[in-house]
Simulated assay, not measured.
Amino acid sequence: MDLPALRCFQVVARYEHISRAAEELRVAQPSVSRTISRLEAELGVRLFDRRGRRIHLNEHGASFLRRVDRALRELDDGLRELADAAERNRRVTLAAETLLTVTALLVRFRDAHPGIEVRLRQSSADSMARRLRAREVDLCVASQPLVGPGLVSELLLREEVLLAVPDGHRLAGRDAVPLSALEGEPLVSPSRGHWQRVLADRLFARAGVEPVVVCEGDEPGAVVSLVAAGLGVALLPAMARASEIRGPLSWVRIAEPGCHRELRLVRDGGAPHSTAARLFAAFAADHFRTVGATATATPAGAAARAGAGAGTTA
């Protein structure tokens, strides 16, 4: 039994799918199958139940996985501590729901600390806690609460969420509107599970308004451009006003309580953190303090207009 075999088992157990595990491990599928078969032969028990081409972690596999996770986590923590002591750990791995939220942060951090490598993983809120526990990432930037034992979060930014409408829309130029004013309005939104959709669903349900979702998908960065093109309206964070957009756009406040998002930096409080990760965390806190101050200084009701730039949202 060796470490590569245990790490292979860990990934296969997570996906319960040989080909997906092979893709993540970047090895051939037959190699993964042989590794699992050898491990089971060495242990003397089956770790997975085979049903046709599908595999499922059985009770022996689930029990073994808990111990493998614990052992590999301890080993990885030890390796990080030693690398940090030798000043060789010059890497930080970050997960974020939307990469555009952290783009400016990464550019500034790279300029300030060119010797530190930052690896970025786009992740759903559901997968972030697992990635932290598995030590796949050092830090997460999340707009939704992450639940899990030992997770520690720091508030980076609390910003207003605004209504974006095409220029010339009946609500354009208004300082604030109630959600009832959006009854029947076509809504452009990310898919369910994304923080913007979670917030929109909660606010609309509380107000008793039925939104008409005309466009939803997994590219939140395209929402601004779709609104500017006249496809509908959208709820967007205040920082999206700073983005360049395709065509004119107007921003209106929502006259309802709770129309904001909290962006948090989350880490596993039980994991050792490298100097690089600590530097990044401190830098992120300072960066978003500046972003928050800038957003507060910009009038929310002002219409935003720009030329043919790339649409973005956070």
Score class of each variant (00 low, 15 high):
residue 118 V to L: 13
residue 102 V to D: 00
residue 94 L to W: 00
residue 76 D to S: 11
residue 74 E to R: 12
residue 91 R to N: 13
residue 112 A to P: 08
residue 123 S to M: 10
residue 103 T to H: 14
residue 75 L to Q: 10
residue 118 V to W: 12
residue 83 A to H: 08
residue 76 D to P: 06
residue 78 G to Q: 05
residue 77 D to Q: 05
residue 98 T to C: 06
residue 125 A to P: 03
residue 101 T to Y: 02
residue 120 L to M: 12
residue 86 A to P: 01
residue 101 T to I: 03
residue 121 R to D: 03
residue 95 A to W: 01
residue 124 S to C: 02
residue 83 A to E: 11
residue 116 I to L: 10
residue 91 R to Y: 14
residue 95 A to E: 01
residue 121 R to E: 10
residue 95 A to S: 11
residue 87 E to D: 09
residue 80 R to M: 12
residue 122 Q to C: 04
residue 119 R to L: 13
residue 113 H to L: 06
residue 125 A to T: 08
residue 121 R to L: 13
residue 87 E to W: 04
residue 100 L to V: 14
residue 79 L to G: 12
residue 94 L to V: 12
residue 86 A to G: 06
residue 121 R to S: 09
residue 106 L to C: 01
residue 110 R to C: 06
residue 104 A to L: 05
residue 74 E to N: 04
residue 110 R to N: 09
residue 87 E to Q: 07
residue 125 A to Q: 05
residue 98 T to Q: 07
residue 100 L to M: 15
residue 88 R to C: 09
residue 77 D to T: 01
residue 81 E to C: 06
residue 101 T to A: 07
residue 89 N to M: 11
residue 116 I to W: 08
residue 85 A to P: 06
residue 84 D to R: 01
residue 103 T to M: 11
residue 86 A to K: 08
residue 103 T to F: 05
residue 95 A to R: 00
residue 108 R to F: 07
residue 84 D to V: 10
residue 87 E to V: 04
residue 93 T to Y: 05
residue 101 T to Q: 09
residue 79 L to S: 10
residue 76 D to R: 10
residue 108 R to T: 11
residue 95 A to D: 01
residue 74 E to A: 12
residue 82 L to Y: 08
residue 111 D to Y: 11
residue 120 L to R: 11
residue 100 L to T: 15
residue 93 T to F: 07
residue 89 N to T: 06
residue 82 L to K: 09
residue 82 L to T: 09
residue 85 A to E: 12
residue 85 A to D: 11
residue 92 V to C: 00
residue 123 S to T: 03
residue 89 N to E: 14
residue 123 S to Q: 08
residue 116 I to S: 03
residue 75 L to D: 09
residue 84 D to N: 15
residue 80 R to D: 11
residue 114 P to W: 02
